[in-house]
Design a binder for these strands. Structure first.
Lengths: 231, 231
DNA sequence: GCGAAACTGTCATATTCCTGTCATGGAACC
DNA sequence: GGTTCCATGACAGGAATATGACAGTTTCGC
């Protein structure tokens, strides 16, 4: 099982190789560049699942890369872990406040770094970490492809499963029908917007068992969202 | 502005006080307990926004607390930062793999801890990181499309939502009806000026719950404004 | 392969909720 | 007191969503 795409920005070749080896052993696909500007290009082209970013690199500084990754809409949500020789508290605080998700000081253990990457990914892309997605009394096990509500297994069709998974990965957030078609059906498919309604209904029908409260909120003129307190 | 509720599980009174002081200064509401079992009770009762968890505490171990917090549906998504004296790599990896979001080794700087808490919260609750418009006791979360007054969710129709959003984006400023029609309805639409009054009324009706003060001020012969001191 | 069962996308229809307008009453201003 | 402006309640039409049904397709067990 592939764990995710990782972009490594590191100009020390020895360290880069070491990390590459470790992460590839853990089933990550690793892209590597020593250069800040190139990192931005790579990230914009195909956003990775996570970025490991050395503070001191060729071209623009790591901090600046971090800032720009955050600013670009297509990479704004990609998590970043900063790697650095600087152990100063002020630097760490600055790194974290610039938008980094974690900050690791050299020397560090590759195993710990792997664990930290997993911890961050668990948050951002629970599915990539082989996690069980949970929301209220709903559980989805990606690996075994099972969904439960209040402990009771729920049968779901493929589309409803992907739809629910998408909601569980972004709980609370409202998605327009167009957006859902893009991310759940696929950007290239040509499907009627209203079809989303139908699948929402099927999903609702499936998960609203035994008088349990509605979990999918309709937001008129906006779309749908996973939500517990407001039907 | 309140930053979130924080549950601190720490049995060293001196350290607990220090952290409490720091986080309260940063506008977190801090609950504290030295005991693992009580921590679980507190967390289950009113899930905090984040948990700071010492590894070595009274009662059950921090690691076990972490595991159980993850298992309970109502707290499964609450982020956890482990605090510990253990610097052993194996422990750190174990902590992170058990479901902790971050792992900080004593001695640590309170400021860095605050920064880490913010970094984690930024991920988990974009709501706490500026995606939310606030005014007085009113909150609007753009992403989840929700509006709350004094913590209570308020249902709003699409137009009222856009209207309120416009006010929240320009608090205090007075807008003429014509201006509001332009920015909230759209420049091209041909709608009666007086219609604005009606929607203002609907908005007022919706957000003035439980005797709360009026937030929308009428400026005679000029328009309306979001304002807390004048009805 | 074959038939049954399940899944998909679409439509027509029902239903719900929202919207803009008006008539009327009331408040502020002069 | 008269005028101007705003607040309110009611309402019909409309827009957005929910629902039920259906034919085409895929999947699965055998």
């Amino acid at each position: 099982m592939m764990n995710g795409n990782l972009l490594l920005v590191e100009d020390d070749p020895a360290l880069a190789d070491l990390l590459k080896w470790h992460f590839e052993r853990e089933d990550f696909r690793v892209s590597h560049t020593p250069d800040g500007d190139e990192a931005l290009l790579l990230a914009a082209e195909t956003p990775p699942d996570i970025i490991l970013l050395d503070w001191m690199i060729e071209g623009i500084s790591g901090l600046e890369v971090c800032r720009r990754v955050r600013r670009a809409p297509e990479t704004a949500n990609v998590p970043i872990i900063m790697l650095t020789g600087r152990g100063e508290e002020a630097d760490r605080v600055r790194g974290l406040e610039t938008g980094a998700d974690d900050y690791v000081t050299k020397p560090f253990s590759p195993r710990e770094l792997v664990a930290r990457v997993r911890a961050v990914l668990r948050r951002v892309r629970p599915a990539l970490a082989g996690e069980v997605l949970k929301f209220a009394d709903l559980e989805m096990d990606i690996v075994s492809h099972k969904v439960k509500r209040a402990g009771k297994t729920i049968p779901l069709g493929p589309t409803e499963f992907r739809l629910l998974r998408h909601f569980l990965e972004h709980p609370g957030r409202v998605f327009s029908r167009a957006r859902l078609l893009d991310s759940v059906w696929g950007r290239d498919r040509d499907i009627e917007l209203r079809t989303v309604d139908v699948h929402i209904r099927r999903l609702r029908q499936a998960i609203n068992i035994g008088g349990k409260p509605e979990l999918i909120r309709t937001v008129r003129s906006a779309g749908y969202a996973l939500d517990d307190d407001g039907g």
